[in-house]
Design a protein around this nucleic acid. Structure first.
Length: 792
DNA sequence: GTTCTAGAAC
DNA sequence: GTTCTAGAAC
């Protein structure tokens, strides 16, 4: 602790030549040192370690540097002061020939603008140092600290941190900073401290953006990032630097006016035209690099319309429909349809239809160019590309498939082999592209998703004989599978960053144990990615993987249908997503099945509330809230959402109605409750069951992260949505990626992050925020004040 | 799904 | 030392 830290500002001893102050003296200093004075704006929420940083630099070993720390928490005679006071102190110090560290949160652009301006006016180099630690680390530290200068600690701190992080805006060079340094963990912070502490009088630091690997969206939270209906903070921080919209004049789709920031990342419905505008291309690439938009962008070719000769008009409808659905579900994700030629008929059809549908053209657009050279020749930053694969997942054959395999080199073939041997029409498989692949190195492509669509070409395998009813369904499925897989990549990308950063929980000093831990978690995380991400949705075991292999166009279903295991889904239940819904259930997972098949055996227990031919209503044995019941289907072989087809719609509607009825009954007993009805994407217990659960989550049986996330993330599929999706597409889209269950803990009402279950639980006891807006729509919530629409 | 428990985090 | 998480076993 610097002895002067309690005052309005603290400085290490100034060099004698700077005594006497004034601009002149300062300029002399500059000349002498060969460098300008610095105004370093720290950014970070409470708990991010700004003061520690500032104290280390100001009071550290660098006695030759004349730093002044301007700390808003102490500027008022040791107590919190105002921004004006900070500005004045900073101005005085700069005029005095001292470099300044601004120690206040400065998370929003507006909050720091005056300091940037001041630096400019007084000819100082203005740097940003963003302390971008994960929310939960900051919260944990802020909550636990004692004797904080600004008296912000304890429960109040968590609230403040959360509120601030919602508004965080990533610093940009365009704000006026000459250098931006982001610190994503304690190691980064130490490096930054060392860097600034070690600056000699004549040293200067290179300009530019450094260390911005972990982007704003990650810090704001995965849910915030992915879920529709949240505030715009993510777009603000993620999108503010891209200016694709400026790249081409022929913008067709004007942006909604309220999405100003998005407009910055927007493009006209069609951009690109390949290669030649070097300036533009460079700009895109550069801008995108400093943002995370590339990792949230999927470029895909039109599936089935080339060699497989699928009707273009129908295909374009399907592309636009599936893309629109997908974008509705996920915010901040970009989809780009790519084709080589400007004259591409499919591109113009899609453009026209997307425009008619008023799809946000910043998040879905067409692009003329080579999908294997999007960054270098097209200036489009994009980490995930889709491949219109063949069923054998082999290179060659011409078209996009040949181009991608050729551009990616042999490593793509090897990586593909590890994931699958073959693909069924209507499905896709994610292949992480090894870093040695030229496509990875040159274009920044991290994943290739192979997709197989329906074939309408009599010369190719699995010819569909012009059956467009089936063909359209399969093409629909192919795009859905592609987009879902893409979503899970983005999710796991975010989750991984959070996981890695989340390992950094201890106080600022500890580097080596943390480093060890970090590496371990990181490699562990990669392992997990290997296991899960290689497989299409819902496939998580080797066995299932093999099933898919067996289920290729040439192998059909024989190996599966002969399955005699009594605890597996029956044959024929798995027509949908190309990924077999088969799953082996542990003995413990049979309980609901047993009950559904033989409710009479259990009729003496008071857990069964109602029995009909179609379902049983049961009090959950381990309720995760004050009221938690299950409506269990009695249909044999219907184990999870993955088994559902349109035939089950009437059943689902009746299960829903039964659930609503019970919710209303409970509301009569306690009008303060709010209920949500839904299914787990991947249930742990066999036999399809609908959860009716009150949103207090006040239960000792709710014990861990998996419990919480299974009811409060997209893993929980609202019954109304499931029903709607079956009505529209014949099957529900399940978020089969179980990694959401390991995500950070966020309040289901205010979305604030919490470091552990006990702290989360104590928060939700008192959180009175209204529910996120998407939950308040379509009767997803049932309370004493809502009306419900009967789905029967 | 839960229980148990080692060891990480605090 | 206590609290908490996460993986294994069932």
């Amino acid at each position: 602790m610097n002895p002067d830290a309690g005052g309005s500002s603290s400085a290490s001893p100034p060099p004698s030549s700077s005594l006497g102050a004034g601009t002149e003296a300062k300029e002399e200093e500059e000349e002498e040192r060969g460098g300008k004075l610095l105004l370093v704006v720290l950014m970070g929420p409470p708990g991010s370690g700004k003061s520690t940083f500032a104290e280390a630099v100001v009071g550290g070993s660098n006695a030759g540097r004349w730093w002044v720390r301007v700390c808003q928490d102490t500027i008022g005679n040791g107590k919190a002061g105002t921004k004006i006071q900070c500005l004045k102190a900073a101005a005085d110090a700069l005029k005095d020939g001292k470099s300044v560290l601004i120690d206040r949160c400065n998370l929003e652009r507006e909050q720091r603008a005056d300091f940037v301006k001041l630096g400019g006016t007084l000819h100082a180099d203005v740097h940003a140092v963003a302390l971008d630690l994960p929310a939960k680390v900051c919260i944990s530290r802020a909550v636990n600290r004692k004797g904080h200068d600004g008296n912000l600690q304890g429960g109040k701190a968590a609230l403040v941190v959360n509120r601030m992080l919602q508004k965080k805006e990533t610093p940009l060079l365009t704000e006026g900073f000459s250098r931006i340094m982001s610190c994503n963990d304690d190691g980064d912070i130490k490096k930054a401290v060392d860097l600034y502490s070690a600056l000699g009088p004549s040293d200067s630091l290179p300009s530019g953006v450094f260390g911005q690997k972990s982007k704003g969206p990650v810090q704001v939270g995965i849910m915030k990032f992915l879920k529709k209906g949240d505030t715009s903070s993510v777009e603000k921080s993620s999108g503010s630097k891209l200016t694709l919209s400026e790249s081409k004049p022929e913008q067709q789709n004007p942006l909604p006016k309220h999405e100003k920031v998005e407009a910055d990342i927007t493009c006209p419905m069609e951009v690109g035209k390949g290669s030649n505008d070097k300036k533009e291309s460079g700009e895109h690439a550069k801008e995108s690099d400093s943002d995370d938009v590339g990792s949230r962008t999927l470029a895909f070719p039109s599936i089935s319309t080339a060699d497989f000769q699928f009707d273009l008009d129908r295909a374009s409808d399907i592309i636009v429909d599936t893309a629109a659905d997908f974008l509705q579900k996920f915010d901040s994700i970009r989809l780009v349809l790519v084709d080589l030629s400007e004259k591409s008929r499919i591109l113009s059809l899609v453009k026209e239809k997307a425009s008619k549908k008023s799809i946000d053209c910043s998040r879905f657009f067409t692009f003329v160019g080579d999908i294997t050279q999007l960054r270098t020749r097209g200036g489009l930053q994009c980490s995930v590309i889709a491949n219109a694969a063949n069923w054998r997942l082999k290179p060659g054959g011409g078209g996009v498939n040949a181009a991608i395999f050729s551009a990616a080199g042999e490593s793509l073939q090897h990586a593909t082999r590890k994931c699958a041997d073959a693909l069924r029409p209507g499905t896709s498989v994610v292949v992480p592209l090894p870093s040695i692949s030229p496509l990875h190195q040159r274009e920044g492509v991290t994943h290739v998703i192979h997709v197989l669509g329906p074939n309408m070409n009599p010369m190719r395998p699995d010819y569909m004989k012009n059956d467009y009813t089936k063909g359209s369904k399969i093409l629909h499925e192919a795009y859905n599978s592609l987009f879902e897989n893409f979503a899970s990549i983005v999710q796991s990308h975010m989750g991984k960053q959070n996981g890695r950063l989340g390992a950094e929980m201890s106080a600022s000093g500890g580097t080596s144990p943390n480093d060890t831990k970090m590496k371990r978690e990181d490699s562990h995380g990669s392992e997990r990615m290997k296991k899960h991400k290689l497989l299409p949705p819902t496939m998580t075991t080797k066995k299932q993987h093999e099933c898919t292999k067996a289920n290729t166009p040439n192998c059909h279903d024989n190996s599966m249908t002969s399955s005699a295991a009594p605890n597996q889904s029956r044959e024929g239940d798995n027509k949908k997503s190309g990924v077999l819904a088969n799953k082996t259930w542990g003995s413990w997972a049979q309980a609901l099945y047993e009950l559904a098949m033989h409710p009479e055996k259990y009729k003496n227990t008071d857990s069964i509330l109602e029995t009909s031919d179609e379902f049983v209503v049961l009090k959950d044995l381990y309720p995760k809230a004050k009221r938690h019941v299950l409506v269990i289907s009695r249909t044999d072989g219907l184990d999870s959402l993955a088994d559902i087809t349109k035939e089950h719609l009437p059943l689902l509607r009746r299960m829903h109605s039964a659930g609503v009825k019970w919710a209303q009954k409970f509301l009569e007993e306690d009008a303060s409750l709010v209920f949500r009805l839904g299914y787990h994407s991947v249930p742990s217990m066999r036999q399809l069951h609908l959860h009716i659960i009150s949103q207090d989550f006040n239960s000792t049986s709710l014990k861990n992260k998996k419990h919480w996330n299974s009811f409060t993330t997209q893993f929980f599929r609202d019954s109304v949505d499931v029903i709607e999706e079956i009505e529209q597409h014949g099957s529900p889209t399940t978020t089969s990626d179980e990694k959401v269950l390991a995500m950070e803990l966020r309040c289901h009402r205010c979305r604030s992050a919490h470091p552990n279950i006990p702290k989360l639980k104590s928060h939700i006891e008192s959180c009175k925020s209204s529910f996120p807006s998407h939950l308040q729509q379509k009767n997803r919530l049932i309370s004493s004040t809502t009306m419900h629409v009967d789905c029967t």
